[in-house]
């Protein structure tokens, strides 16, 4: 509306909007890792605690189950507990990690980068 048809910036902008409306360009989706909208500090704390512990619980369950299965009493449990703890920390890290797609000093790959 009110845009000159020859205005390249206005046209590409409108084309992008139209394509998005029709669903031709899949929108870049990067969902927030958070569950609740605008969480309070207590909610964040509860989520961190839960994510930290849940991996450890799963690891304990797997270790205990494998021990039961193979009759190797403590060894699988001993092996899985540190792994579970690390997985819990990984869960928390994912929650607060900087966006890997954002520009910045991030060691992760950001896509095709001929400069590296």
């Amino acid at each position: 509306m009110g845009q000159e048809p020859g205005d390249p910036r206005g046209f590409s902008e409108r084309l992008r909007a139209a394509r998005e409306r029709q669903g031709l360009d899949p929108r870049p989706t990067r969902p927030e890792p958070s569950g609740a909208p605008d969480p309070s500090a207590f909610a964040v704390g509860a989520r961190v605690a839960l994510d930290l512990v849940s991996a450890l619980l799963v690891a304990c369950a797997i270790g205990w189950g494998l021990d039961r299965l193979f009759g190797t009493k403590p060894w699988f449990l001993i092996g899985f507990v540190p792994l579970g703890g690390a997985a819990g920390v990984l869960n928390v890290w994912r929650m607060f990690a900087p966006d890997p797609k954002a520009p910045g000093p991030d060691r992760r790959k950001t896509g095709p980068d001929p400069g590296r």
């Binding site: 989520r47 994510d51 849940s54 690390a86 990984l90 869960n91 994912r94």
Partner: peptide
């Protein structure tokens, strides 16, 4: 972007992290 040498350690951690959803989602 992880050295191949570390994969035997990191893949189980990733799998455990994936499975931890079972607990975190249900307990929440």
């Amino acid at each position: 972007g992880v050295p191949k040498l570390l994969l035997p350690l990191l893949v189980p951690i990733e799998i455990l992290s994936y499975l931890s959803r079972l607990i975190s989602l249900s307990v929440r």
